[in-house]
Write a protein that binds this DNA or RNA. Structure first.
Lengths: 114, 114
DNA sequence: GCCGTTCGTTACGCAAGCGTTTCCTTCGTT
DNA sequence: AACGAAGGAAACGCTTGCGTAACGAACGGC
């Protein structure tokens, strides 16, 4: 089910969503943080630090820091892996799911307005 | 011409675009900066600092700083207004237009892949 | 049981963004 | 000419993210 957009629609959508998000949400996640968050919630688990780092093409500390920040915001959680106790498994949270749900609604609504 | 998206498509699109943008572009603009940039390029001029500040619901220094950063990247330019020399008019640049054009293509291509 | 390897975190110095406040120039009015 | 108001920038101290390098805990093969 592809989504066909004109250049004007593509940028217009991004514009409207960014604008509204800036106005509404003081949390102001970076693009990297957003990418990580969406990766965690849209791609089947399990998610690990090194896995995310490889996927985004960034270093591990970038992931650790992003998880620190988003963890403090309640958007994600971290749990040690009992199979291999070196690993940390990143968990979704109710609050994070809610956050993305609202964000998705924002995209949908701004898309309709185009 | 509305754009109708399912929740999965909306978040999926944002996900794919964010991910690709993180991997491709080291510049990593903040959401605020992106909103300002799109505002400048998609809304008819003239644009002023206070106008953008009011539009985004942020303080003037936020705009000044964002323009400093994006100006250094060549994405925007600032020119004194000769009619009222207190004002600064924000100008588009070729490089900025190119940047957004490529970004638009990215959105379109990721949309198709959904 | 060692020892090299892997995983995630922490430490370091640095750059960039933040909110608030202050400043400087310019305008418009008187 | 003087004065208050407006527009944008600069200054301040603070927070947060960065890249690199070092670290400790846990694993796995020998």
């Amino acid at each position: 089910m592809p989504v066909e957009l004109t250049p004007s629609q593509a940028l217009g959508l991004w514009h409207a969503v960014s604008l509204e998000q800036v106005r509404v949400d003081s949390r102001d996640l970076t693009l990297r943080q957003m990418a990580i968050l969406l990766e965690i919630y849209l791609v089947p688990p399990p998610h690990t630090v090194r896995g995310l780092a490889a996927r985004l093409g960034v270093t591990k500390p970038v992931i650790t820091r992003a998880l620190d920040t988003m963890g403090a915001l309640g958007l994600v959680d971290r749990v040690r892996d009992d199979r291999d106790r070196r690993n940390v498994v990143i968990k979704r949270t109710v609050e994070g799911a809610l956050y993305l749900e609202k964000f998705g609604d924002l995209i949908i609504n701004q898309g309709r307005k185009l």
